[in-house]
Design a protein around this nucleic acid. Structure first.
Lengths: 226, 226
DNA sequence: ACAAAAGTGTTCTTAATACACCCATGT
DNA sequence: ACATGGGTGTATTAAGAACACTTTTGT
């Protein structure tokens, strides 16, 4: 079952991950600096070619580990990006399968270098350089997905302790959505999304009135339209 | 730039299209019957391997034409489906890129046979057989996308004359969403979606009170969340 | 005049927004 | 007692759901 037809030669599948974190009230994305051509010296999302014997998500995870040392990351959804690289003498058909990840940047040690990259850094999403390939476009689309995902999943779990307060949660939403919300309305909205639940505990975070503690639900059911 | 590494051998990219139509109040999907192994004799969505020198969407369109004779079809969005086919002696890494199409089945002549298929038929989506590969799963996901898409695009243009009446439109929505709606509320909802506009004309479709004529807007702007 | 299909408006309920005061803690 | 940050409720507006009568046309 080997592909033995010239029509199908020179095809490549890449797995590319946009890995985000939230730091204070700004959202950051993890980029690596390319060591080799093409786009030598340019920053890029984390990714590379898929191996023959692995599933897409496993490939994405392997690339993330090889290039940044990050082991534990939840990956979500996928997008597809299409690219026909034209050369002098042949074409290279590339399909990039894009993943979205979210980790706690503060508690994650990043390895800076590997055989294909010379650096790895968190960039504020409002201050991203021109990236290799069409990674700027991929980044935009994945960020948009992240903004949708936080409204209907427990993806934000990784950025918070098991139990957290409403103000902690609000600050992360504000960071990702790049907006501020009224405290009362935010609480009402989030509770109506049915993605967190009250633990009936309280803590005083910094010597003021104690806050209630919430946690994400394990199972989150979908909403419907129309 | 040839892929000369064993790790990347035996990879394949397939483009798979779920082509829908609406007939009366039921939604149908176009399936083809496979002539060859694997899954010989099974029904499948329309698709096949991507060539090296074409973009994904072009490949999808070529496959559709080769297998069904359909030339004019708008394709939308994509999904990715991951499959590692295990054999006795090697693995075949397949990635299926899925497209969604919608055409007017009544006015489209379908070619029944080609070198890889022995038949092509419209199936009521409530009555789809076990399909080849994981095409049942792909079909479900693409149908879900179609149901979202009709609420925020002009994708339904192809099923209607340039100018159409509200009851005609409602009947198609009811067919795809598999629900019935109150006439007044449907009208309000659709108009609020900002995807159609009044033409200030009327026709009497079948010798009763004349209906107003509407048409889809050319440009449709996106809504936002939060 | 009547049958068939299309147009229209009001009420009720639910969700979204805007906004101000009280409470618990540490100093 | 006061400063800090967290909790709560109400009034207004906008959107969704439920529902019945009138209009036009052909026979």
């Amino acid at each position: 079952m080997r592909v033995g037809n010239r029509l199908y030669e020179n095809q490549g599948i890449h797995v590319i991950s946009a890995i985000f974190t939230v730091d204070g009230n700004c959202t950051k994305v993890l980029l690596v600096k390319r060591k080799n051509e093409p786009y030598k010296g340019k920053w890029a999302l984390v990714g590379g070619a898929l191996y023959n014997n692995e599933y897409l998500e496993d490939g994405a995870r392997r690339e993330i580990f090889e290039k940044t040392g990050i082991k534990d990351v939840n990956l979500y959804q996928y997008g597809v990006f299409d690219e026909l690289r034209k050369n002098d003498n042949n074409n290279m058909r590339m399909v990039a399968i894009a993943y979205l990840g979210l980790i706690d940047g503060k508690n994650t040690k990043i390895i800076k270098e590997n055989k294909n990259t010379t650096d790895a850094l968190w960039f504020d999403i409002n201050n991203v350089p021109n990236l290799a390939f069409s990674h700027n476009e991929i980044l935009e689309k994945e960020l948009e997905k992240l903004r949708v995902l936080i409204l209907k999943s427990n993806i934000l779990k990784v950025l918070l302790p098991e139990e957290f307060t409403m103000p902690q949660l609000q600050s992360i939403y504000e960071g990702i959505l790049n907006k501020t919300f009224d405290r009362r309305n935010f609480r009402k909205k989030i509770l109506s999304l049915n993605i967190i639940e009250d633990t009936n505990k309280e803590v005083s975070i910094n010597g003021n009135k104690p806050s209630k503690l919430y946690k994400f639900k394990d199972k989150i059911e979908n909403k419907k339209i129309f």
